[in-house]
């Protein structure tokens, strides 16, 4: 069940650049559902099915990827009072972080974001923010935190209805849960490589080296995309619970008709309702997979989420399940 994978994954926080916690959980879990499991120097985790099948026996190598990382924060300074200064890694607006709780991955330290007084809200930048980890002084803080430590927004994932979850920055865990389920379900004849990538938030750095390594005949990126089914939404095309979105284009690439039509055929074959994703403001690993080596045919299947802000992403379980069915049809 996708939900079960998601429930296991949802507590694993994975800041961009320090995805180790999720990577080690994945490596352990994947051993039971894939033939080969390994990690590369950036920290991408690979799971391969049918790795030693002769090329004459398989139609093609298909790579499915999902990113493990969340936008994060890094510590750039610790002051005498034990307060931390941070910078954002990813698309953060400093003002939105006032009062948020952060979780520092290395030591699982919790911090609260404060702001210097006398700064107008509209002018708040990262240099005005500090993080309070309830340290007595610098020495006390340094017991738990070092310059360069990475954090994510802290917060629980909760059930809103039997079908809808909400939590901060769910994109990575939603995508990874779908990929795990496909990997487990697929009884495929093709060589299939599942890649759990790192550092998507800083320009798909993990995906770039992964695509070079795998050199697949087809790559499909699993990620989330923004719903437009809320009041006065600018682009009211995608809706929660209406099925997976097959990528037409996003901010990083335009999907070739042959690739997107193949995914549409899979959806039709599997009897899965789907939506068409035209999201010019959404980033994904797609381009990094696409422009590797001589060019890798690349498409995407996205899960529609309502994203009020980074703190509250909503996801519908049916969309995840249908994405699994679609992708399983593709790789079989």
């Amino acid at each position: 069940m996708t939900k079960t994978w998601f429930e296991q994954l949802m507590h694993l926080k994975s800041p961009t650049g320090e995805e180790k916690l999720m990577a080690s959980w994945l490596k352990e879990t994947l051993k039971t559902i894939a033939d080969d499991v390994f990690e590369d120097v950036l920290g991408n985790v690979y799971a391969v099915k049918n790795p030693r099948r002769e090329m004459s026996e398989v139609k093609e190598t298909i790579m499915l990827s999902a990113h493990m990382d969340e936008p994060s924060f890094t510590v750039i300074d610790i002051d005498d009072g034990g307060f931390l200064r941070i910078e954002g890694i990813g698309d953060w607006h400093a003002v939105n972080l006032i009062g948020a709780r952060l979780l520092f991955a290395r030591t699982q330290t919790i911090g609260v974001v404060g702001v210097e007084p006398h700064v107008e809200l509209a002018d708040v930048a990262f240099r005005h923010l500090f993080v309070d980890i309830a340290a007595k002084n610098r020495k006390d803080a340094e017991q738990r935190i070092a310059v360069g430590d990475l954090a994510t927004v802290h917060g629980a994932v909760e059930t809103m209805t039997s079908d809808v979850f909400v939590g901060p920055v769910l994109s990575n865990r939603i995508s990874c849960a779908v990929l795990l389920e496909v990997l487990q379900k697929a009884n495929n004849q093709s060589k299939m490589v599942a890649v759990f990538t790192v550092q998507k938030q800083v320009g798909s750095r993990g995906a770039r080296v992964a695509s070079y390594r795998v050199n697949s005949d087809l790559a499909v990126v699993i990620d989330v995309t923004k719903a437009g089914d809320t009041p006065h939404a600018e682009r009211p095309s995608l809706a929660l619970g209406q099925g997976p979105a097959i990528k037409m284009l996003d901010a990083t690439m335009v999907v070739a008709p042959t690739v997107r039509d193949r995914l549409i055929d899979c959806a039709n074959k599997a009897g899965v309702t789907y939506q068409r994703e035209v999201s010019p403001a959404t980033t994904s690993d797609a381009n990094a997979l696409f422009v590797s080596r001589g060019g890798i045919p690349t498409g995407g299947v996205s899960i529609v989420t309502r994203q009020a802000s980074f703190f509250s992403n909503m996801v519908h379980v049916a969309d995840m399940k249908k994405a699994v069915t679609l992708l399983t049809t593709l790789v079989e």
Binding site: D40, V41, L42, N44, T74, I76, D77, E87, I89, V147, G148, R205, R208, V209, Y212, R213
Partner: peptide, 23 residues
Amino acid sequence: QWRRTIGGANDVGAIHLTREGIV
């Protein structure tokens, strides 16, 4: 000392993403 800013870059940015990734 630690370089305490996220601004600026150097050749590592290109090197570490070459081929299958370089430490």
